[in-house]
Protein backbone atom coordinates (compact mmCIF):
# COMPACT_ATOMS: atom_id res chain seq x y z
CA UNK A 1 0.00 0.00 0.00
CA UNK A 2 1.11 3.52 -0.69
CA UNK A 3 1.89 6.06 2.01
CA UNK A 4 -1.22 8.02 1.19
CA UNK A 5 -3.25 4.90 1.75
CA UNK A 6 -1.67 4.15 5.10
CA UNK A 7 -2.74 7.47 6.55
CA UNK A 8 -6.48 6.91 6.35
CA UNK A 9 -9.09 4.35 7.31
CA UNK A 10 -9.39 1.77 10.08
CA UNK A 11 -8.70 -1.16 7.78
CA UNK A 12 -5.03 -0.23 7.68
CA UNK A 13 -4.40 -1.00 11.36
CA UNK A 14 -5.03 -4.68 10.73
CA UNK A 15 -2.98 -4.56 7.59
CA UNK A 16 0.09 -3.14 9.41
CA UNK A 17 -0.36 -5.73 12.17
CA UNK A 18 -0.51 -8.56 9.66
CA UNK A 19 2.46 -7.09 7.86
CA UNK A 20 4.48 -7.04 11.10
CA UNK A 21 3.58 -10.68 11.79
CA UNK A 22 4.58 -11.55 8.24
CA UNK A 23 7.99 -9.96 8.57
CA UNK A 24 8.60 -11.58 11.99
CA UNK A 25 7.70 -14.97 10.46
CA UNK A 26 10.04 -14.25 7.61
CA UNK A 27 12.93 -13.52 9.99
CA UNK A 28 12.14 -16.55 12.17
CA UNK A 29 12.02 -18.82 9.15
CA UNK A 30 15.44 -17.64 8.05
CA UNK A 31 16.79 -18.23 11.60
CA UNK A 32 15.28 -21.75 11.53
CA UNK A 33 16.98 -22.51 8.23
CA UNK A 34 20.34 -21.21 9.50
CA UNK A 35 19.93 -23.27 12.70
CA UNK A 36 19.06 -26.29 10.58
CA UNK A 37 22.25 -25.93 8.56
CA UNK A 38 24.30 -25.60 11.77
CA UNK A 39 22.61 -28.69 13.20
CA UNK A 40 23.54 -30.58 10.05
CA UNK A 41 27.24 -29.83 10.56
CA UNK A 42 26.94 -30.84 14.21
CA UNK A 43 25.53 -34.19 13.12
CA UNK A 44 21.89 -33.91 14.28
CA UNK A 45 20.34 -35.10 11.02
CA UNK A 46 16.80 -35.41 12.41
CA UNK A 47 16.84 -31.93 13.95
CA UNK A 48 18.13 -30.59 10.66
CA UNK A 49 15.18 -32.11 8.82
CA UNK A 50 12.64 -30.61 11.20
CA UNK A 51 14.22 -27.19 11.29
CA UNK A 52 14.56 -27.01 7.53
CA UNK A 53 10.96 -28.17 7.02
CA UNK A 54 9.62 -25.55 9.43
CA UNK A 55 11.92 -22.90 7.97
CA UNK A 56 10.83 -23.50 4.40
CA UNK A 57 7.13 -23.75 5.19
CA UNK A 58 7.21 -20.47 7.14
CA UNK A 59 9.28 -18.88 4.40
CA UNK A 60 6.80 -20.01 1.77
CA UNK A 61 3.80 -18.71 3.74
CA UNK A 62 5.25 -15.31 4.53
CA UNK A 63 6.70 -15.01 1.05
CA UNK A 64 3.29 -15.77 -0.40
CA UNK A 65 1.70 -13.09 1.74
CA UNK A 66 4.28 -10.48 0.81
CA UNK A 67 3.81 -11.39 -2.86
CA UNK A 68 0.03 -11.06 -2.46
CA UNK A 69 0.20 -7.59 -0.97
CA UNK A 70 2.63 -6.54 -3.70
CA UNK A 71 0.09 -7.68 -6.28
CA UNK A 72 -2.57 -5.54 -4.62
CA UNK A 73 -0.36 -2.49 -4.85
CA UNK A 74 0.27 -3.23 -8.52
CA UNK A 75 -3.45 -3.44 -9.34
CA UNK A 76 -4.10 -0.19 -7.51
CA UNK A 77 -2.06 1.73 -10.06
CA UNK A 78 -4.49 2.80 -12.76
CA UNK A 79 -2.96 3.06 -16.20
CA UNK A 80 -3.69 6.27 -18.04
CA UNK A 81 -4.37 5.21 -21.61
CA UNK A 82 -3.37 7.24 -24.64
CA UNK A 83 -6.29 8.87 -26.43
CA UNK A 84 -5.77 9.68 -30.08
CA UNK A 85 -7.69 11.91 -32.46
CA UNK A 86 -7.71 11.19 -36.20
CA UNK A 87 -8.05 14.26 -38.41
CA UNK A 88 -9.01 13.80 -42.03
CA UNK A 89 -9.56 15.96 -45.08
CA UNK A 90 -12.61 14.41 -46.72
CA UNK A 91 -11.69 15.86 -50.14
CA UNK A 92 -8.12 14.69 -50.55
CA UNK A 93 -8.13 11.98 -47.91
CA UNK A 94 -5.05 13.14 -45.99
CA UNK A 95 -5.10 11.61 -42.52
CA UNK A 96 -3.17 12.67 -39.46
CA UNK A 97 -3.25 11.62 -35.83
CA UNK A 98 -2.58 13.66 -32.75
CA UNK A 99 -3.26 13.42 -29.05
CA UNK A 100 -6.77 14.18 -27.83
CA UNK A 101 -7.43 17.73 -26.67
CA UNK A 102 -10.34 18.87 -24.56
CA UNK A 103 -13.15 20.05 -26.84
CA UNK A 104 -12.44 17.50 -29.58
CA UNK A 105 -15.38 15.51 -30.85
CA UNK A 106 -16.06 13.31 -33.85
CA UNK A 107 -17.16 15.40 -36.90
CA UNK A 108 -15.88 18.62 -35.38
CA UNK A 109 -14.69 20.90 -38.17
CA UNK A 110 -11.15 22.17 -37.81
CA UNK A 111 -9.03 24.64 -39.79
CA UNK A 112 -8.38 24.42 -43.52
CA UNK A 113 -6.43 21.59 -45.13
CA UNK A 114 -2.88 22.48 -46.13
CA UNK A 115 -3.31 21.15 -49.70
CA UNK A 116 -6.83 22.03 -50.77
CA UNK A 117 -9.06 24.71 -49.33
CA UNK A 118 -11.50 22.27 -47.72
CA UNK A 119 -11.96 22.13 -43.94
CA UNK A 120 -10.50 19.22 -42.05
CA UNK A 121 -12.74 17.05 -39.90
CA UNK A 122 -12.14 14.79 -36.89
CA UNK A 123 -13.20 11.34 -38.01
CA UNK A 124 -12.27 9.19 -35.02
CA UNK A 125 -11.33 9.42 -31.36
CA UNK A 126 -10.13 6.23 -29.73
CA UNK A 127 -7.78 4.83 -27.17
CA UNK A 128 -4.93 2.47 -27.84
CA UNK A 129 -5.35 -0.78 -25.89
CA UNK A 130 -3.24 -0.89 -22.73
CA UNK A 131 -0.45 -3.45 -22.41
CA UNK A 132 -2.58 -5.60 -20.12
CA UNK A 133 -5.41 -5.68 -22.63
CA UNK A 134 -3.01 -6.52 -25.46
CA UNK A 135 -1.76 -9.52 -23.48
CA UNK A 136 -5.29 -10.65 -22.79
CA UNK A 137 -6.55 -10.31 -26.32
CA UNK A 138 -3.63 -10.36 -28.76
CA UNK A 139 -5.76 -10.94 -31.87
CA UNK A 140 -7.94 -7.88 -31.41
Amino acid sequence: MTNKAASSGSSNKISTFVLAVTYITLILSIIAIVAGVTAFYEGFIEVTAYLLAIGFIALALSGYYVFQSRKHVATLKIETPKILTTIECIKCGIKSTREFQRGDYVYKELDKCSKCEDTQVITAIYREPTLKEKEKNPTA
Binding site: I83, A124, I125, Y126, R127, E128, P129, E133, A140
Partner: peptide
Amino acid sequence: VSMMRKEIS
Protein backbone atom coordinates in the same frame (compact mmCIF):
# COMPACT_ATOMS: atom_id res chain seq x y z
CA VAL B 1 -18.46 2.70 -20.46
CA SER B 2 -14.77 3.50 -20.81
CA MET B 3 -13.06 5.46 -23.56
CA MET B 4 -13.79 3.95 -26.96
CA ARG B 5 -11.16 1.43 -27.95
CA LYS B 6 -9.56 1.41 -31.38
CA GLU B 7 -11.12 -1.97 -32.21
CA ILE B 8 -14.60 -0.59 -31.55
CA SER B 9 -13.95 2.55 -33.58
